[in-house]
Amino acid sequence: KLATQLLVDLAEGCHTHHFNSLLDIIEKVMARSLSPPPELEERDVAAYSASLEDVKTAVLGLLVILQTKLYTLPASHATRVYEMLVSHIQLHYKHSYTLPIASSIRLQAFDFLLLLRADSLHRLGLPNKDGVVRFSPYCVCDYMEPERGSEKKTSGPLSPPTGPPGPAPAGPAVRLGSVPYSLLFRVLLQCLKQESDWKVLKLVLGRLPESLRYKVLIFTSPCSVDQLCSALCSMLSGPKTLERLRGAPEGFSRTDLHLAVVPVLTALISYHNYLDKTKQREMVYCLEQGLIHRCASQCVVALSICSVEMPDIIIKALPVLVVKLTHISATASMAVPLLEFLSTLARLPHLYRNFAAEQYASVFAISLPYTNPSKFNQYIVCLAHHVIAMWFIRCRLPFRKDFVPFITKGLRSNVLLSFDDTPEKDSFRARSTSLNERPKSLRIARPPKQGLNNSPPVKEFKESSAAEAFRCRSISVSEHVVRSRIQTSLTSASLGSADENSVAQADDSLKN
């Protein structure tokens, strides 16, 4: 292990032709098999893994070397290190390495390699500790012929580059190093199909959405987006994914797998022009299946994007999809995704031109529960009313008269009656009930004795009459309010007539 670390330190600071010789020695160290011998017992696995620490030291050392060589000349050094790393990870899946030390190597290698970024000039870069990406002036992410390196360097940008540029090249004859992302992409596909350690798979799935944002990485080298989509959909639809995973937390289920895969599918929607129609349908189907899991909100957001990006695919699945959405409970976490999906859909009339009455009724059935102001915040309630109004205007004229009683009944049950079921009123009724029952229970537990009763009969009569009056008032709060309003209006009217009579009498006395 110490000798391997010494080789790594020497290679990191070497800029001459001896660098390749040092890498040859490190490569021989990495070539050791990580498969346990067949006769190895389970209690000896930890000791055997400790004997392979030099392999881990070599791989982690290459990660440090690549981070240094990416910004220094010659660029061919970075290319050689990158290829060695990718080849080593491929061996893991070729020979099915399952030892804990092998999983640790893959975890740290993917953690580093999935941080690679590219700008519009195809320059590769890595983020620093502050998250700012520094791009290399010597390494690009696409394949290029050595003699055409300078031509590639002087080509115009596709868009303004992001991030601070690296140091300027030493001279005009500098050759750019090619670090094609397709090599890593193929290893990522192998990981999605064969990885057995949940920690490694979770890391890859968590980092892929951010990497897919940099389309330069994908399009400048032959990366098959179709295969990526197929691998992701197979993970969700195939039963073998959960069987092969180990190291998963207790209670791990298909729902947890959906939570990890759906963000990658959402990021892949922007590549729909490069996906086969069959793959697009598979993607939409997987998102529909996710509606029954805890990732339902993410799936609804993804389907909203699909309705804009892939209208030809979503239009066929939309009638059944809208009916499925009615089975989702009206909760605060689902309110905004569902209502925004319906609001977006209302502005795309070509998608729902074939809707029948059942689909329009489903839209109103989804939106009406969110009009309850005692359960949802003001934004959700306003958005629900907006969706109902928009869809009522957009639905066909023959359907409107049939939906009017349905909508008014839903609004009455969710908006008007919600004020009668407020917690304050319920607590008031509970308190009044307890007050009504309390005197009775006290009389049963403690019967009054005439000799020891010091309270006069008049006081008892007053208290009983007050309790009886309170019971009468607490029967119905709404009736009490109505009666008080009527009494107030009658009182004001009587006072007004009394004032008029007094004024008339005063005038008569003055005349006399």
Rank of each mutant, 00 (worst) to 15 (best):
H77Q: 07
L212F: 02
T154H: 10
T220P: 02
T68Q: 12
L205S: 00
D226F: 02
A78G: 04
Q67V: 02
T241H: 07
P209M: 06
A58L: 00
V200R: 00
L60F: 11
P160L: 12
E145F: 09
S136T: 07
R106K: 02
L228S: 01
L121C: 12
G177V: 11
S237G: 06
P137F: 03
G166I: 13
E243S: 09
E250Y: 07
T220D: 02
Y181S: 03
R123F: 04
L52G: 05
V187I: 13
V59W: 01
A58I: 00
S155D: 13
L201K: 01
K56Q: 08
A173M: 13
L208P: 00
D54G: 02
L192W: 00
A109T: 13
V133H: 07
S221C: 02
L158Y: 12
Y97A: 02
L66Y: 03
L121A: 11
L201I: 06
S234Q: 13
V86Q: 01
A50L: 06
S182K: 03
H77F: 05
L217G: 03
G251A: 07
C229L: 05
A173Q: 14
L203Y: 05
G251N: 09
V81H: 00
T98E: 09
P161G: 10
K199C: 11
K199D: 15
T79K: 10
K153A: 14
K129T: 11
L236D: 01
V64F: 07
V55P: 00
K202F: 03
E243K: 10
L73C: 11
G251S: 06
G163N: 10
T98K: 06
K215F: 03
S155F: 12
Q90H: 11
L91F: 08
S221E: 03
S87P: 00
E250F: 07
R123P: 02
S150P: 13
K199Y: 08
P74N: 03
P180S: 05
Y97V: 02
P239I: 07
L205G: 00
P180D: 08
R117C: 03
H92A: 01
A173L: 11
S51Q: 12
A118S: 06
S96G: 12
A78Y: 02
T241R: 08
V64Y: 06
V140K: 07
Y143G: 07
G125D: 01
T72N: 10
M144F: 12
V64E: 15
A118N: 03
Y214C: 12
E243M: 05
T72V: 13
P100F: 01
I65T: 04
Y138N: 05
G156N: 12
G206P: 01
C139H: 10
P180F: 02
S49D: 12
K153H: 13
C141S: 07
P164N: 14
R244I: 04
S234V: 08
R123A: 03
L217S: 03
S230M: 07
Y82C: 02
V132C: 09
S234M: 09
V55L: 02
G163I: 12
P74V: 01
D142S: 07
Q67F: 02
P164V: 12
E83Q: 11
C191F: 01
G206S: 13
R123L: 02
Y214F: 10
K193Y: 12
V55S: 02
Y82E: 01
V204K: 00
H122Q: 03
T154F: 09
L189E: 03
L73G: 15
E53D: 08
L66F: 12
